[in-house]
Design a protein around this nucleic acid. Structure first.
Lengths: 180, 180
DNA sequence: GTCTATATCAGGATAGAC
DNA sequence: GTCTATCCTGATATAGAC
């Protein structure tokens, strides 16, 4: 991967996240990356191709996190770490996750295209297992509820501003609720 | 409000929700509404003006729901009805709420413009009060958490497909968790 | 209130040279 | 791999007639 190519990806991600995918012209991207517009098309075929690369790279992070999760033995620890997922991911790539969620809301096809569901179902089963080991009465439902909470944490954190502190408080509160 | 004007609003809402605001041209709207393109601009000045009207109308529904909420005495009932808010609103205007959330994610300014925060803070205080009356130890944090849950229900319901049934199960589960 | 026609403009994409 | 120049399309918005 040449430096210029990488530059295009980084600048595009930044602009897509700030202003939205559609609102960001290839022209703007080229200027931000200090590169000619044509080069974008050489490397990525079209604007969509550029987005595809960005998303694939970004999702790898989440995949590796979930993979780590499967290696944890203690069920309490599994739940506790799961709750940290939004904070962890957004801490590393806030821009990407903002972009990701906005696109997902906009276009239902989107999540399917990048096989997000595989990731979710793996995460769900790990959490389900944890509740099962902890002898919760309705582990399946608990897991679904837990995922809803994780999703909520994501929203909280994505909404910058006061979101960060608010989320930290929330995290503490949830952990105490579950005795983690 | 003339019939044609109303038609423009309805068709625009439908198309905006389906394909996104930016992806929907005034041309498409005009054709869908069986109306000339110029008429849109006569009535709404520009495309943004059309969106403004749609959002203002749509939000009134949520406002009136929250207003009803303030009139309920029994705190358990307050919580229970609050949880129904997503289902109620989306049941009445699924398209609108899909549009609303996608725009909100896309553009942080968006929610501010239409004073969504007023609505949220009113809802929060009602819920906070309920937990206070129920003698919960940390009513403020409980209320914030409860709002996170409500937000999660919204996401669940917005994602059509199997979302509906899943959400019904979730609702039942949450209510039993809170003994409502 | 409504339509038709059209001006204007910007974005995505391509061609060809280096 | 990279740049410059350029084409083409489609979208917003306006003007003027009815």
């Amino acid at each position: 991967m040449t430096e210029r190519k990488e530059n295009i990806i980084n600048q595009a991600l930044k602009l897509f996240a700030e202003n939205g995918y559609i609102n960001t012209s290839t022209n703007k991207i080229a200027r931000a990356a200090g590169v000619s517009e044509g080069l974008i098309f050489r490397h990525f075929t079209n604007k969509q191709g550029l987005l595809d690369v960005i998303v694939e790279v970004g999702l790898k992070d989440a995949e590796s996190f979930v993979l780590q999760l499967t290696k944890i033995q203690d069920p309490r620890e599994v739940l506790s770490v799961s709750l940290e997922l939004p904070k962890y991911l957004i801490g590393r790539q806030r821009e990407f996750w903002q972009l990701y969620h906005s696109l997902k809301y906009q276009n239902p096809e989107f999540a399917r295209k990048y096989k997000e569901s595989d990731l979710i179902s793996k995460l769900t089963s790990v959490i389900d297992n944890a509740f099962r080991e902890l002898r919760y009465e309705h582990p399946g439902e608990e897991a679904a509820f837990f995922l809803l909470i994780i999703g909520g944490m994501f929203s909280l954190l994505t909404k910058e501003e006061t979101g960060n502190e608010e989320a930290a408080d929330m995290l503490r509160f949830i952990k105490s609720k579950y005795r983690l």
